[in-house]
Nucleic acid binder design. Sequence first.
DNA 1: CTCGCAATACGGATCGTCTCGTTTAGTCGA
DNA 2: TCGACTAAACGAGACGATCCGTATTGCGAG
Lengths: 199, 199
Amino acid sequence: MSNEKGPDHSRRKERSRQAIFAATRALVVEEAYEKVTVEAIAARAGVGKQTIYRRWPSKSAVVFAALLALSEDADGQSVALPDTGDLEADLKLVMRATAEEFADPSFDRLIRALNTEIANDAALAAEYREKLARPLEEAKKARLRGAQEAGQLAADADLDLVLDVLYAPLFQRWLHRSGPLTAAYADSLVDATLRAFRP
Amino acid sequence: MSNEKGPDHSRRKERSRQAIFAATRALVVEEAYEKVTVEAIAARAGVGKQTIYRRWPSKSAVVFAALLALSEDADGQSVALPDTGDLEADLKLVMRATAEEFADPSFDRLIRALNTEIANDAALAAEYREKLARPLEEAKKARLRGAQEAGQLAADADLDLVLDVLYAPLFQRWLHRSGPLTAAYADSLVDATLRAFRP
DNA sequence: CTCGCAATACGGATCGTCTCGTTTAGTCGA
DNA sequence: TCGACTAAACGAGACGATCCGTATTGCGAG
């Protein structure tokens, strides 16, 4: 007798959870963000509103969780940057790929929604940093540490600063739509960063 | 006979316009942003809702216009960076001042609201770039051009890129609350940028 | 039979529209 | 010069629609 826990409702729960996430993502991608409503999510997921509010306290939390889960699934456990030994080539590869990601309309809408939520909620912002930003940063910093040991990067460089200088311009250009995210732009960011922090 | 234009109702218009802007700014500063409603703005400004909707198509547009007007007033016509001939000192002065501005809670809320609006509306983003970002950028680029001529900056440097590398990390750190905006951080951004683009 | 869930009704709040008297600025006649 | 007249703009707020978050109900799986 499983008197410890109730019977196995976890599968049912998990199914509706995934349905809610899928519906949320679909709506964020295809509708104007302000039209993404809890009622629309529930209808599309084929669940009752109460099932959503039973698990998350607000619409923001649902959207955030859906996007967070997306990245967690995608990443799996293995977040690692390429390491061919050629720092410049590796970084340009990664930066070009990042620029392309941002150029994808679906990705654009998803990340824009995510940024909207975390820009106005310090608690969500902290959770975002903890669960998404930090692991990615650690992976990037691991690659940079290797470069420092190989003498391709200043040994005393502040790696947080290096990452800021490398990524923030791309992010800002995307967020403010102040220019196209071309491969050339990605390359020039890598070049500038490497000049700033060369040994 | 002024058959060209109707009678001069501009004073009345202008008074309510300023009242609406003042009320909007006050509410953005002191309330959580989602509590800034058109009804609250109208009540505080002592105007009818229709007076607001007669001039702007949506709440977003009102908020945006109020914040835009704030900066336009503040700037006046003279946007110019200090130019003592010492590029590094001038930039550190400006970057430290910028970091302090972002640390001010009122300024923080105003700019956060502004960014929320423009992140999800490409038209507002374009207007923002045109009316606010561009003039500031031009002033900054004018200072950098002087530095290029004085041989303090690489003559072939892309000034848009220089500005991105200089400012974007500060902006992103503020937006994502990923770290404190200290004078030391401001200085290190100037140092990194000057290393990346030295002659 | 029992229990969790989908469906849906509900109250509260806000948006954006509409209507209604009132105020205001400009016009004109005495 | 001055006080009524007119038309536009206005403050106030009622209204329908929509959405949030809560509470209730009826059904179907186990």
